[in-house]
Design a protein around this nucleic acid. Structure first.
Lengths: 211, 211
DNA sequence: GTGATGTCTTGACACTCGTCAAGCTTTTCC
DNA sequence: GGAAAAGCTTGACGAGTGTCAAGACATCAC
């Protein structure tokens, strides 16, 4: 028992630890899907268990408490989310191609992963009230900012002009645009994703300074 | 009884209706303060009542249910929030003066009203999960967008140049910047508000097109 | 004053929540 | 194959939730 506390003890077979970590991830995944559906305020541990193939008691076997579970979810969300855009940077060989790739990817993930994105904004907001998540949220936010910076930097290089703003400003712009589009999309506006792509295309040149 | 349902019936003295509305507002105000402190997910009706001078039962006398109360809160928040910036537009007579007034006001409200702002973002996010608040949230968001548009339009006029982006884009930028600053401010970053002001000053010229 | 009406408190209800202990089932190891 | 450990289920607990009915208190009209 109390496996959670003392994973670090010696002489646990590698196999066991892996299995333990694997199930943690699996359960956190069920939790993520449930949270994305219901939102933080309405999701209980029983809801999460019901969306998995286990009963509610098992959650306390793999997680110290609810905060531990949600924290694991937040961390897991990060790894899933951040890499998603990197192929855009890798594939593009013209500024215009990069711009369209970026705009299309934003629009696509808005349509396809709306539930996950609203969960991210929900959890980021919870961190304004609950200190426990804050550090992880700040880390994720930072990695998102760097992801945007990579794209804009690459765009600037392909365009042969320097960037005009610090990464934080550029990130704020695209985060704001995405959030606005998400609200409209979920409210049923069919133009939301197309407008988002258009806004991205239009603002990208403005993130560059004079040659 | 069930005063809530049939306010509309005839022959209620004007005085009574006023008193009823007044108390509703007073209770919604207590609710706002409590929500700003605890966040939507952690605020119960008993918490709200405890932050007022009444007992928890009275809430059900003045509001149909919890959603009714929160909706009233959201609406009340709007009137308190939107007017705040209008004097900036009225007072400014140079582009630079307007820019500094805007930047300083953003920084000031970030410091002074952080709790209320995080509540707004919290409730806006709830509307992504709970349809009941959505209409009111969209209305408030719209009026915030128009508020930003008034400032940028005035700035453009004083500078003698046209604006470069549609209002939605400009709003997304400043909303994004403010949210980022709020996260940093609440996380304890003492530079958050100063950086916000700097970012606002730096981006305002970029919202204008070539003369 | 006296009843009627509006306002508010109290206490209870049915329910859900996070947590956890006890025990059952499966896997692991010698 | 059998003991020990890991993995999982069940059912319960105390606390907290939204809701609401019953009644106390206050205010008003007459």
């Amino acid at each position: 028992m109390t496996q959670v506390a003392d994973q670090g003890r010696d002489r646990i077979s590698r196999r066991q630890v892996d299995k333990f970590e694997e199930r943690r991830k699996q359960l956190a995944d069920s939790a993520l899907r449930t949270l994305a559906e219901l939102g933080y305020a309405r999701t209980s541990l029983r809801d999460i268990a019901q969306n998995s193939e286990f009963s509610h008691g098992v959650l306390h076997y793999y997680f110290r408490d609810k905060v531990d579970l949600i924290t694991q979810c937040v961390r897991q969300y990060k790894t899933e989310c951040v890499k998603r855009y990197d192929h855009i940077v890798a594939d593009a060989d013209t500024a215009d191609g990069l711009a369209h790739g970026f705009a299309d990817a934003m629009a696509a993930t808005l349509r396809d992963d709306a539930a996950m994105h609203r969960l991210w904004y929900d959890l980021r907001n919870q961190s304004l009230f609950e200190e426990s998540f804050r550090e992880d949220v700040l880390q994720i936010d930072d990695s998102l900012e760097r992801m945007i910076a990579r794209i804009v930097d690459q765009y600037a290089e392909l365009a042969g002009r320097p960037t005009a703003f610090p990464p934080a400003v550029t990130y704020a712009l695209y985060d704001g645009l995405f959030q606005q589009a998400l609200l409209r999309h979920i409210a049923g506006d069919p133009e939301a994703s197309a407008d988002l792509a258009a806004h991205v295309l239009r603002t990208l040149p403005a993130t560059l300074a004079e040659a």
